[in-house]
Amino acid sequence: MMDRLSAVQKCVFAIILAGMVMLVTIPLLFFITVSFSNATEMTQFPKRMFPSGEVTVYVEPEEGGKYELFYDYKDGNGYTSIITTNSASKLEKHFARQYAVTIDGDELLEEFAKTRTEGAREFTFKKDMFYNFRQFFKIVPNAGPALKNSIIVSLYTILISLSLGSLAGYAIARYKFKGREQINVGLLIVRMFPTVGISIPMAVMLIKMGLYDTMLGLAFLYSIPNIALTSWITSSIFIGINKELEEASFVFGANSVQTFMKITLPMAFPAMAASSMYSFLTAWNDTISALILTNENQTLALVVYKAIGTTSSGIQYAAAGSIVLIIPALVFTFIIRKYIGQMWGGVEL
């Protein structure tokens, strides 16, 4: 039975909790808003908390069939003139770039023609919410293949580190052998090396092996720390699995392969799922090693990194790219979340 909290305790607890949640969610929310913002919204201050769905412009008719457009019009005060034109193509480009509104230029001119009779007025257009995302893939032409590369390298990394790491974990948990403790600590030391430090010698090795600029080569690098981590996580789970459960299987007619497949593996599955998440995240989020070890076959994280690093005006596109990067990681974590819960005591072993 848990202790009941007094009202004051509850209050303090709620405030602390809310503070912590806000600390995490506000930057994330801001980031999401940026990815849905158009270029004009990017220059505004203060920034919006939630993405807007519409764009309102104030149009005044001018001589020579031209129209003057104002944005951020407030009761006639403080508005800014953005463009004065009568060209349909110019208008179309302006709306797409500045407002993320994809609409035909001639259509706009037709609309604005109303001001000739009715006088200057406001027009509201629907924003194309996924303009930045489309634009990201347009600006970064290799983003599509990079997404595919990222998925491939993540799967390789999971496969390599899970197969080798869990076997090592099993050996550490179940067998007594010389140097067991040293290997255990050694695994941890491997994990301490910054991947970037290993990247240079790895690059030389991979070139010799003909694996430079391949996803398999990159996966080897990512597997180095993750084999260690996987064996640590799984060995603690294997230790937690009572040996008698396996012995019972032997006595009741199973051979060692059957025992491993039907008894040990299903029980260790949560741990494996959890460590596969770590492997996935390493491979998915890394940029610096990918920068060193790849040339043409870049990963998505690297592409996004480059997009952010080389642009000064298109932050919203890079933000959209980052959201693209986050989604698969979120989906993956969501799928295996119940196993992670099991790993920390959801199931009695």
Binding site: E244, E247, V251, F252, G253
Partner: peptide, 28 residues
């Protein structure tokens, strides 16, 4: 091998497999 000896055993920890139903445990 243990499985060829025709013996059965009850363990101190019961060694009932947690990921199987009772039926599957007995039927294993």
């Amino acid at each position: 091998l243990p499985r060829e000896r025709g013996v059965s055993m009850i363990f101190q920890s019961y060694a009932v497999w947690p990921h199987m139903t009772v039926y599957d445990n007995i039927a294993y």
